[in-house]
């Protein structure tokens, strides 16, 4: 039994370092954070601050170099690739900026895809879940269509349905409105808010302030670290005033 009082996600001094030849890049430099069940959190920060790296680690697509990542009471960092794939399938729903629907599969098949990686689920149950999920995002009438036959907004709603269909513990959304016009972007954000209202835990990476405020809590990042929002604004302002050479020197010192 998982302890419902425990946060869904707990990150302790999480670090990610990339090594290329003689260069060491600290993408995450000791991140500490928690996300509770039912929370809607947005991660904000400038380009290269580590948002996407953090999201990849949260989504079990990548592993931290150091530190601890507890998901639903399970320590993730030492799990095998196969085990991570299994947990990813059960606990996490991804929504990507570029939708990432598979062009050769119908809407139904795309949404069904995560369930096909799950053992012991009957075809009838899969069908029921896919239909429910598509109805939830208002796309059940396009089940037999292929992605190319849908608009960008519709494709993203299908992607949301695919993320929801496995009934994951958390939805990870990486710039979900980045490829959409403002009207479709608004519609997708409303959908996420509705899902959150229905009890879904959502963690969204965005650089769009308009949508970041929709989240109930914001985690600000700068140079691989979590900072408070006020500090982030100050850091940005300083950066604008500093010459480029000094900025580079400051970053390499992290």
């Amino acid at each position: 039994m998982k302890d419902e009082a425990q946060p869904l996600i707990r990150l302790t001094n999480l670090k990610k370092i990339y090594y290329t030849d003689e260069v060491e890049t600290h993408a995450l430099a000791g991140v500490n954070a928690e996300i509770a069940r039912g929370e809607f959190v947005s991660i904000i920060g400038p380009s290269g601050c580590g948002k996407s790296t953090l999201l990849s680690i949260l989504g079990l697509l990548d592993t931290p170099t150091e530190g601890r990542y507890m998901l639903n009471g399970t320590a993730i960092e030492d799990l095998s690739a196969a085990m991570r794939a299994k947990i990813r399938n059960r606990e996490i729903g991804f929504i990507f900026q570029g939708f990432n629907l598979i062009g050769d599969l119908t809407v139904f098949d795309n949404v069904e895809l995560p369930l096909t990686y799950r053992d012991g689920m009957s075809r009838a149950e899969r069908k029921e879940r896919v239909q429910a999920s598509l109805e939830r995002v208002g796309m059940s009438h396009r089940m037999k269509h292929y992605p190319a036959q849908l608009s960008g907004g519709q494709q993203q709603r299908v992607a949301v349905a695919r993320a929801l269909v496995g009934q994951p513990s958390i939805l990870l959304a990486d710039e979900p409105t980045g490829n959409l016009d403002s009207r479709n972007g608004d519609a997708v954000m409303k959908l996420l808010e509705q899902l959150h209202a229905d009890g879904a835990t959502i963690c969204m990476v965005t650089h769009d302030q308009r949508f970041a405020v929709c989240a109930k809590r914001r985690i600000a990042m700068f140079d691989g670290q979590v900072v408070d929002e006020q500090a982030l604004e100050e850091l940005r302002a300083n950066e604008l005033r500093q010459p480029l050479s000094e900025q580079a020197a400051a970053r390499s010192a992290v």
């Binding site: 989504g59 697509l61 690739a81 196969a82 794939a85 299994k86 990813r88 399938n89 059960r90 991804f94 990507f96 990432n100 629907l101 598979i102 062009g103 050769d104 895809l113 995560p114 990686y117 799950r118 695919r162 496995g166």
Partner: peptide, 12 residues
């Protein structure tokens, strides 16, 4: 597409 499948839980 293969990356998407991996993200959705497809193991090696």
């Amino acid at each position: 597409e293969i990356a998407v499948r991996a993200a959705l839980g497809a193991n090696r």
